[in-house]
Design a protein around this nucleic acid. Sequence first.
DNA 1: CTGTATCCATTGAGATACTG
DNA 2: CAGTATCTCAATGGATACAG
Lengths: 121, 121
Amino acid sequence: MKADMLISFEEPCPIRDVLDRIGDQWSLLVLNSLSKGVFRFNELMRDLGDISKQMLSKTLKRLEKDGFIKRTLYPEVPLRVEYELTELGKSFLDPMAGLINWANENHQAIVLARQNYEKKR
Amino acid sequence: MKADMLISFEEPCPIRDVLDRIGDQWSLLVLNSLSKGVFRFNELMRDLGDISKQMLSKTLKRLEKDGFIKRTLYPEVPLRVEYELTELGKSFLDPMAGLINWANENHQAIVLARQNYEKKR
DNA sequence: CTGTATCCATTGAGATACTG
DNA sequence: CAGTATCTCAATGGATACAG
């Protein structure tokens, strides 16, 4: 392996593994919501705005399985379930914020690049 | 919109837009390769190791369209094409490195969380 | 050498009815 | 309330034959 490589290709490759987790449409958005505090299932639905319950369910399950979030069931009637970030999840907010800031700062440049690309064809 | 939101939901949402671009299996890995310098098509194939030419072609086209990379055609025989990062692409290396470092540092924790999750079921 | 076109398998994602 | 099951459709990704 070259010394200047940012990405390690050991098996399993950490960055590919992490990308599999956050590369879907919803994981980062769910983590962003949970960065604001503890949420119940339907609160997350409302906060995200346009996610289906099925996708929210699947996304939460994956994030829980990989240790990003903690699920707590309160066996009341009616049922209450709360989701919150674990320490691992919280530690991820930092690189995530870097990504989000870059996106907000450079989105316009990407839009312009696309328009320019279309013109040239 | 709440004041403490990291993610803006303006239309089009920058973070969703950027995620669409880098959330696929290969974009970040291609950008990582190109962070090392100028590459030809087959050089990228070899550097990435296990990407198909079809996926490399598609990935490069999208990255070019969105202004992350520049494609230069030298009409020689045989054909020569070179790919390199644009300024926009280079500026993305910074948040990307944050993500990659986090992945390398926390991958083991994720693996352990998964094993623990499996045990409990 | 640098791709594109085609075929196929897998996964992601929406809608919605149903369950504990 | 908090999900799961099922159905359907679109998008992703691999293999490989073909083209400029």
